[in-house]
């Protein structure tokens, strides 16, 4: 896991390792593996032409580019995943990264898959000039379709470092944004700020822990429970396969993860239980044949009766089952 055993420091991690860590073993299906940059603006520097540089990285890291995209399974659910690799040219975003991620998002849009992108990047790739800049817009346009039109679910995971164009596009567009502990997250990096303002930037002022109270992301999750957190909180109602999956991330301990899978046709009814009084308690249950009632709302969530009614009605309509009130 590339963690320091003493202090728990999160070291950088290659994309292949991360894929192995994050998904069910043996379920990785890569996409667009053979895409390479064309050196579109003929950027040559005397010491090291751009093409040679890419070539040397390709040999060293045995990847064609600094992002790996594909479909993998997370506790049995197909998920579209992109993982960036900082070791490959600083994880910089060029045409290939833009195109691969855009295609992944389009694929996920088409197949209604949840999307996870693990970001690790120094920003846009200088050697491709404004073309790299435009990749920000390209990915955002794909995300607009994915999130706003199709209303699908996207989680970026910000690892150290996530800066520049990646922060200012898909890094910050998640429905839920997860950061790794101590990750360096910025739009303008430390060096840029120091150069423009001639001020020194104190260490740690762009670390995830410092930015968290400023409200920039939802969660800071250490690497070991990352996979379970990712798979927590999915309620998936798949009409096509007639399967319902419910995941919950519980208290640490024996019942750390709750995973329920059952068939839609087994759902008998949606039940609302209302206990009025000083401690009003309104819970929404799903009645399933052979499994009893499963609570859907959290115990500490207190909806108004009207909200509750609406939710129940929506769900019941979707599942085409009756509503019971207790």
């Amino acid at each position: 896991m590339n963690l320091c055993e003493q202090c728990g420091y999160h070291l950088k991690m290659s994309s292949s390792d991360r894929i192995e860590l994050s998904i069910d073993p043996g379920t990785w299906e890569p996409m667009d593996e053979d895409m390479v940059s064309l050196d579109p603006i003929e950027f040559h520097s005397e010491e090291e032409p751009y093409k040679n540089r890419i070539d040397s990285y390709q040999r060293k890291i045995e990847l064609t580019e600094d992002v790996q995209t594909g479909i993998g399974q997370l506790d049995g659910i197909n998920v579209a995943i992109a993982v960036m690799n900082f070791q490959f040219m600083g994880g910089s975003m060029g045409s290939v990264v833009g195109e691969k991620i855009t295609r992944l998002i389009e694929y996920a849009t088409k197949d209604f898959l949840p999307l996870i992108i693990v970001c690790a990047s120094g920003g846009a790739r200088m050697q491709e000039g404004s073309l790299s800049l435009m990749q920000m817009a390209k990915i955002s346009s794909a995300l607009y379709d994915y999130q706003s039109n199709k209303k699908l679910f996207y989680v970026p995971i910000l690892t150290s470092p996530t800066t520049g164009g990646v922060t200012a596009s898909f890094g910050m567009l998640g429905d839920i944004i997860i950061a790794e502990p101590n990750a360096y997250i910025a739009f303008a990096g430390k060096r840029v700020i120091e150069q423009t303002l001639n001020k020194t930037v104190p260490d740690g002022s762009q670390a995830a822990e410092y930015l968290f109270p400023k409200g920039l992301f939802d969660l800071i999750v250490p690497r070991n429970p990352l996979k379970s957190v990712l798979s927590s909180g999915y309620d998936r109602f798949d009409v096509k396969d007639g399967i319902v999956c419910i995941f919950r991330w519980g208290f640490p301990g024996k019942n750390l993860r709750v995973l329920l899978r059952f068939l839609i046709k087994d759902i008998q009814s949606v039940r609302i239980e209302v206990k009025e009084g000083i401690y009003a308690r309104r819970v929404l249950y799903m009645d399933i044949r052979g499994q009893g009632a499963i609570p859907l709302t959290r115990t500490d969530e207190n909806f108004t009766p009207r909200e509750m009614e609406q939710k129940a009605a929506e769900l019941a309509y979707f599942l085409r089952v009756p509503i019971e009130v207790f």
Partner: peptide, 19 residues
């Protein structure tokens, strides 16, 4: 590029405009 803007979410503001 300054720390205040970073804290206010410069990246987030730009990203949302793009989308």
């Amino acid at each position: 590029a300054d720390l205040k803007s970073e804290e206010l979410g410069q990246g987030e503001a730009i990203a949302h405009n793009l989308r």
